[in-house]
Write a protein that binds this DNA or RNA. Structure first.
Length: 411
DNA sequence: ATCGGAAGAT
DNA sequence: ATCTTCCGAT
């Protein structure tokens, strides 16, 4: 038996947040393409949305016990732009959303100096925002943190001990699970670009994309390539090699993407379940329709990247790509050198998306009937499957529907 | 503050 | 499956 909530009153607790807002449903969550959070909706391939409900103020009228909340009980503070359906969004995603937005930096922010680490500066407010998004007016930090703790086992998140309200993302996990096949492309001859003017640098990076995410993505990608190339999993990539949960039981899944977009034609970056990725399938899946705001990777939203952070095994970070003499426009990115080297070592297929979008055009598939999904089991991990020889379709056919046009590419 | 079990909700 | 809710333990 459960003790009824003391403040909320029995009726309210019985209905949870359901009665506090307009009935949920697709119609209640109109899409607002203009509000795409460039980075996350891209990374997570989620539809842009705006929360239809006003947010409750931190201090203000409570929902009357036994009655639905009125809009007046939830005024003022705008929630972050949504990237997922309110009823489907997952907490880790929401956290990333908040972290991405400058206006919430006083509430939650990346921890300087620690890769993927963030601090919840105002737990109550974060909980409030989360409750708002989930239509759970009774949400509080205690409950939210319980949800966060469930991420520990999934290794999406872990706690930074000794630091209050401080957690750390496991981006490798996140990216690998969602985008096992997302390719890192490099110009065919990276060294040729060293002295090239910045405008000729190709890029496919969204503005505001958390650099942790980017790093992890590239890191995971690199590790996957290494793995697929039959090389040893590098040290310094603990998340990549650790998959101790192994087969079956724990194979953590970061949750599915929202229904309309999970099998969406432009989100087929993963391989079908019976079709593990391999080098053969490293044809660029590229990206869904690109936000118009794609630009070079820089700006105030980028968290600090520790200078000492570099790809494992990279002893000379600045020997391969732009380096100190490179274009000053973009922030130096530790992954570039190694990836550039990798492009040579792991095959010509590996290309790198660098840091400049000008002139880069990407055509996404108009329509694809097939359904696909992002299966974490096929992602990079220590137990990654080698490509099954003799499998029917070696490469997801959809991938051919994407095409990147590089400024330097021949027509 | 943090953790994790248990049970319920969707 | 992913939380939400509650709670005892540390």
């Amino acid at each position: 038996m459960r003790k009824p909530p003391e403040e909320a009153g029995p009726a309210l607790s019985a209905v949870g947040g359901a009665s506090c807002w307009p009935p949920r449903g697709p119609a209640s969550f109109p899409l607002r393409p203009s509000s795409v959070p460039a980075s996350l909706s891209f990374i997570l391939c989620l539809p842009p949305q705006q929360c239809p409900f006003p947010a409750r103020p931190s201090r203000g009228p409570r929902c009357p016990p036994g009655r639905p909340c009125t809009a007046a009980a939830w005024p003022r503070v705008p929630p972050p732009a949504q990237a997922a359906t309110g009823s489907q969004i997952q907490l880790w995603h929401f956290i990333l959303e908040l972290l991405q937005k400058e206006e919430f930096r006083h509430v939650i922010a990346w921890q300087q100096g620690e890769y993927g680490e963030f601090v919840i500066k105002d737990p109550d407010e974060v909980a409030r925002l989360w409750g708002h998004r989930k239509c759970k007016p009774q949400m509080n930090y205690d409950k939210l943190s319980r949800a966060l703790r469930y991420y520990y086992n999934k290794r999406i998140l872990h706690k930074t001990k000794g630091k209050r309200f401080t957690y750390k993302f496991n981006f490798s996990r996140l990216i690998v699970i969602n985008y096992p096949l997302w390719e890192v492309r490099a110009p065919p001859a990276p060294h040729l670009l060293r002295g090239a003017p910045a405008p000729f640098w190709p890029a496919l990076l969204p503005m505001g994309m958390p650099s942790e995410l980017l790093h992890s993505l590239l890191l995971a990608q690199w590790a996957m390539v290494e793995h697929l190339a039959g090389q040893q999993t590098p040290r310094g990539l603990p998340e990549a090699a650790e998959d101790k949960m192994g087969s079956g039981s724990g194979a953590p899944r970061l949750g599915s993407l929202p229904a309309p977009f999970q099998p969406g034609p432009c989100c087929l970056l993963g391989s079908p379940q019976d079709e593990p990725p391999g080098l053969a399938s490293f044809t660029p899946p590229l990206l869904p329709s690109l936000p118009a705001s794609w630009t070079h990777l820089s700006g105030p939203l980028l968290p600090h990247v520790p200078p000492e952070w570099q790809f494992p095994g990279t002893s000379k970070p600045d020997t391969l790509l732009p380096g100190p003499g490179g274009p000053p426009v973009t922030r130096p990115f530790p992954g570039l050198p190694l990836l550039a080297g990798l492009g040579q070592g792991a095959g010509e297929r590996l290309r790198l998306f660098s840091l400049r979008p000008q002139g880069l055009k990407v055509k996404a598939c108009p329509m694809i009937g097939a359904q696909g999904r992002l299966d974490p089991r096929e992602g990079f991990s220590s137990e990654i499957h080698r490509p099954k020889t003799g499998d029917k379709s070696p490469v997801s056919p959809q991938l051919g529907n994407f095409k990147a046009v590089w400024p330097l590419d021949p027509p």
